[in-house]
Design a protein around this nucleic acid. Sequence first.
DNA 1: GTACACTAGATGCCGTGGCATCCAAAGCGA
DNA 2: TCGCTTTGGATGCCACGGCATCTAGTGTAC
Lengths: 158, 158
Amino acid sequence: MASKASDETVDLPGFFSDLVRCETRLYNALNDRLRERHGIVTSQFEALRYLRDHPGSRVADLAAEFAAGVGAISKGTDRLERHGWVARRPNPSDRRSSLLALTDDGLRLVDAAEETFAERLAELTADALKGFPLGAAAQVLSELRSFLERDQIGTPTG
Amino acid sequence: MASKASDETVDLPGFFSDLVRCETRLYNALNDRLRERHGIVTSQFEALRYLRDHPGSRVADLAAEFAAGVGAISKGTDRLERHGWVARRPNPSDRRSSLLALTDDGLRLVDAAEETFAERLAELTADALKGFPLGAAAQVLSELRSFLERDQIGTPTG
DNA sequence: GTACACTAGATGCCGTGGCATCCAAAGCGA
DNA sequence: TCGCTTTGGATGCCACGGCATCTAGTGTAC
């Protein structure tokens, strides 16, 4: 199907299709598992993990990280707050914004969900990667991501 | 950032993050370009291209291809039909379903959009892939996709 | 200090997808 | 042929995101 090409004549649209399809199916499968075990979906897990690993983040920081609109993140934060996993703390150096902090419940949740996430992801990719070097793909995507972020490509308006 | 690893000890969650982030930003950027030039978004382009390349497809075929719910595809087809790009033709061998066909307008649109799409995608990835072998990544994603599809992983309910 | 431009983010409207439901048409066994 | 089950897909309700708008707070020039 997809061209192998050590001569680097790669079917770019085909590559994009594979990328999108993999993302969709992995995301769906992870959603299912996270929802049944922890009552959250992957996007929420990612947000909580980000807040755990980047204390003192603001809404705009999450928006930049996930290439999402500020409005969407604001509403998503409302939901996380309503569940008691996140708290908006006043930002001492700027009263327009809040610093987002995980609650104890949120911390416990994200740690537990992280195990589920990693385990399920390993299951999902294990079969397919028998004998395929994931490292090369990982490097390419990492590089591509860096460029897209550096040039602000695909950053929404809001 | 991401582990290089010729010894194949790859940070799987990191790989997944990169995958999702690349997909999001590429999708957004392609949406912008397709919308301004042709008045469609990437998902619509993909559907139209699929119909062009797979004549006689049904709603369920599109749903399977894109790992989307049948309901969503049905509604999306309504929209494409409303724009006059797609027609539902009676399926002679099963009166429950329709065969989806591109109209002449739809065909012209998808051909034009395909150029825009390929050109923009090449732009977006060119910088990042200087000196990085995309072939390896393409092969891995193609393989992964095959496995996910074969095992029906991440296929929605509806 | 005051005026003005800018930023953070909260909110509303709308478009879209998931999922459940429903109906018509097929398939199928007796 | 008659029921029962299954399948294709259309529809309704709800959750969520994009985008526009609005407000409060910030920075800057004078």
